[in-house]
Design a binder for these strands. Sequence first.
DNA 1: ATCGTCGTAGTCAAATTTGACCAGTCGCCA
DNA 2: TGGCGACTGGTCAAATTTGACTACGACGAT
Lengths: 204, 204
Amino acid sequence: MSAIRLLVLGAVKQHGRAHGYQVRNDLEFWGAHEWSHAKPGSIYHALKQMAKQGLLHAHEVAPSAVGGPPRVEYELTEGGREEYFALLREALTTYDQKMDVLSAGIGFIVDLPREEAAELLRQRVRALDEWRTAVTEYYTPEGGPGQLGHIGEIMHMWVHSADAGKEWTLGLIERIEGGAYVFAGEGEPFVGVLAEGEENPFAT
Amino acid sequence: MSAIRLLVLGAVKQHGRAHGYQVRNDLEFWGAHEWSHAKPGSIYHALKQMAKQGLLHAHEVAPSAVGGPPRVEYELTEGGREEYFALLREALTTYDQKMDVLSAGIGFIVDLPREEAAELLRQRVRALDEWRTAVTEYYTPEGGPGQLGHIGEIMHMWVHSADAGKEWTLGLIERIEGGAYVFAGEGEPFVGVLAEGEENPFAT
DNA sequence: ATCGTCGTAGTCAAATTTGACCAGTCGCCA
DNA sequence: TGGCGACTGGTCAAATTTGACTACGACGAT
């Protein structure tokens, strides 16, 4: 899975209704242009594709308020909501070494109930454990390690990084179970988009 | 950069001359099918593409020893060697969060002189430091952290992972400078491909 | 004898991603 | 007052990646 569909669905969902450029902007606002490499082309493509697949409903060309090319506004369909949550759960649980996907998942994690979020992350920890043993087993020749030469460093790296990922995940689980943040169904949700005319609070 | 070109060039280089299936096999032998997601399609595509670009010379269709479809054998051109080393250096120095690229780089690191390898890794450490500060700065709003809510966890994750990456890299530099492994120009090179008829020493 | 399936070698269409480009508006400052 | 650069909103071709499929020979089991 690439992070784009999740990011785009999430952006559209937070707005209720959005056109391509708004999505593009949100992603930038979230810092996603740094860690996901979401180029404009990919975003517009994802929107069209998902509209074709019935995940988004395309509200035809609102004739661009400020002039310029006509804009299409998108809105999640029921199928889109489902896909969104499916992707979100997948992003949080499966370890596919793509940290941009995980980042996107974290960004939207509060759309889930607190207990489910924690459980998904526990599942992620299990996936990391599996990956770790798979790697160590694959790179362990019969005659003991050693004849691997520098190739063993590859294994070393993966193990190190899996361990780091696990450590961080466990920390997050702890914070979540300790009551941090506001999750779905817990009152005023945190919204990560700019309201009209608001200033960007981040330094560039 | 995707890891494929580097992997393919590296595989062809170690053989001197290789056809697609041999490359495909080497990648699997290195465990690359696990961490790079190199599908056959990508491999054959990369071979053709790089032949078209003059990085590989295609020795026309050796009519398949065992029957089956005809095979094309590839060999590095001088341009291919240069591209290989350029990609290798890039893989080792730049942090683009793609661990498969780094893995491939590690796999071929001994093709470089020991001192250069260490220097490239030191450069990687600097790149990691830069990424780390870039992330922390981007996610630090004027009013101090805190109003970020759960979004701060994204930063947390990147920082954690950059730190882990740095730690591992420093360890490797130390081992290399401590004399581990055999680098370019230091006698019998380590070769990570199976000779004819050799057994695969790894468990599957 | 023949059926299934494993290994060898590779192709192909469809989906996606990349990177460059287009065109209009707005403010501003010289 | 006109030109420059930044912002808005998007298109397009080319490159790449994915995932499924083809074809053939050998080999063991039925």
